[in-house]
Simulated scan of single mutants.
Amino acid sequence: MKFLMLVVVDPSLESTEEGPVSIEQWVDETYGAGKAVEGDRLRPPADAKTIRRRNGSIHVTDGPFAETHEWIAGFDVLECDSLEEAIELASRHPMATGGIIELRPAWPLDL
């Protein structure tokens, strides 16, 4: 099963708690085991563009699509045998302690 793991930053959170592992250890564990197959950081919301097509016109606006303090800082694509395994991997990511991890199962078009 494929999962998209969104790494979300919330500047209003002030956690001094350390995660169970460092980001380097998490990457070594998940990518080393073949459980994470792709990932990267994302540019900040100020660099984002939102695109909408309405009545034949294309509208491009600056920034994220929603008014929120939180913003997506990165992503990883996980390949796991179950949702439980994906949750376990995501819970070990350092940003699960200092931010938010959003985990979404892929929904293949052919299903």
Rank of each mutant, 00 (worst) to 15 (best):
G32V: 10
T68P: 04
E67S: 05
S22D: 05
G32A: 13
I58A: 06
I87A: 12
E24V: 14
S22H: 15
I23D: 01
V60L: 13
L42R: 00
F75W: 13
P94L: 05
D28K: 13
P105C: 04
P11H: 10
V77I: 13
P105H: 10
S12Q: 15
V27D: 07
E84R: 15
T30Y: 04
E38V: 09
T50P: 08
E17L: 15
T50Q: 03
N55I: 05
G19I: 07
V27I: 15
Y31S: 00
P20A: 12
P94S: 09
H93I: 00
V60W: 02
G32Y: 09
D76P: 01
E29M: 10
A96F: 01
P20C: 06
I87R: 02
S82F: 01
T30D: 03
R41G: 14
A73L: 03
R43C: 13
L83G: 04
S15N: 09
G32N: 04
T97S: 06
G63M: 11
A106I: 10
Q25A: 11
A36G: 13
D40A: 13
T68K: 11
R53P: 00
A106H: 11
R54E: 11
F65Y: 14
G19V: 07
P11L: 12
I58L: 13
V21A: 07
E18N: 15
L83K: 02
P44Y: 09
L42T: 13
P20Y: 11
D62N: 08
D76I: 01
V21Q: 07
E88L: 15
P105K: 13
A86I: 08
C80S: 02
R54G: 08
G63D: 05
R53M: 10
P11M: 10
A46Y: 02
R43S: 14
T97L: 09
A96M: 03
E67F: 04
F75L: 10
I101F: 01
I23Y: 06
L89A: 03
D10I: 12
G74I: 05
A96V: 05
D76A: 12
L78N: 03
G34Q: 11
T61A: 07
P105L: 04
K35A: 08
I58S: 14
A48Q: 02
E79P: 00
A90H: 05
A66D: 08
D81T: 12
C80V: 02
V7A: 03
E67M: 10
H59I: 15
T68H: 08
I87L: 14
I51V: 15
D40V: 03
I72L: 07
D40F: 13
M95R: 06
S15Y: 01
E85C: 01
W71D: 00
R43L: 10
L42K: 06
